[in-house]
Amino acid sequence: MRFLRTQSLKVTVAFALLTLCFVANICTGSTGISLRAVIDYIFGNTDEELSFIIGSIRIPKALTALFVGMSLSAAGLVMQTLFRNRLAGPYVLGLSSGSSLAVAFLLMGNSILQGSLSNFLNQPYAIALASFAGSLAVLFLVLGIAKRVADSSTVLVAGIMISSFAGAITGVLSYFTTAENLQRYTFWSMGSLANLTGIELLILVVVSIVGLLLFLPKLGALDSLILGDQYAQSMGVALQQARFYLILVTALLVGVSTAFCGPIAFVGLAVPHLSRQLYSVNTHQKLFPLTVATGGTIMLLADLLCKLPIEGWNLPINAVTSLIGAPVVMYLILKNRNV
């Protein structure tokens, strides 16, 4: 959108699109809800049934989509800079698999180990913690590899291998677990934006907001990091500290959204590129708000598409994000042969 000249105009358009998709998302579903009804709901004059659908189903789900989209996209943007690789993202580099493995241990492991901790493990924040720990561990592992090998495609291969490895262990766990636990894990791993309890949604929203805000002081450092570690140091970045900080926040954002919604494919990878293309900006101070807004928009849109095709049925969210994301990746590979 080259006609958008100034940054403030770009941000306005991005957030206008976001608002539009948020409202459209609320209006769409098995019960069609008019824009009128949504406005009425805001002012508190809807009937009880509609009020329940909007307030207890539609809005929580839309909020989930919004925050998951924003978190994953911001995390993807930071990872692409940190790894200096256009194909980096929470899903590709195995963070989601790390989260999955940790959650698999939590959901399926306790039936094997007969752990006395099982009461604690059934708490919603236990999944969040495990998921965060899983993504953090993988992120450190991948970054450790990235520091040793200069070639960025090797790092991607390492990420894929870590994914496979984590997948294999998860496979073993699911072989030995009970059918009930396996079902719980399987549903979780397919990815879903629905069915978050109030407390889960609260954790998601609070952690996402905190995480996104924590990125703000490091946007300048991220710009310097584009040129590589040595240039970043020469431009005043305390390298070790900045890297550790960014990894921690990234893992937090990926961990919390994966915890409650399962591993969601491609959003973290594709959205930063979409925002670069759409708004033609590249420095993080400008790109970050646009990526966050686009992330929320894309996720709301993907969720909306999930609801559309079959009356009363929802497609799995991962199917739709992959349908959008995979072509974006193909396009990138074809456009830049030297990614």
């Binding site: 256009r86 300048g220 710009d223 584009i226 040129l227 590589g228 431009m235 590249n282 420095t283």
Partner: peptide, 21 residues
């Protein structure tokens, strides 16, 4: 590696140590 930076943006990176966030 310079991602998609324009020349102007790339030169602008030099100002980073002088900026607060």
């Amino acid at each position: 590696f310079v991602a998609d930076l324009t020349v102007e943006e790339l030169i602008g990176l030099g100002r980073n140590p002088h900026k607060s966030w």
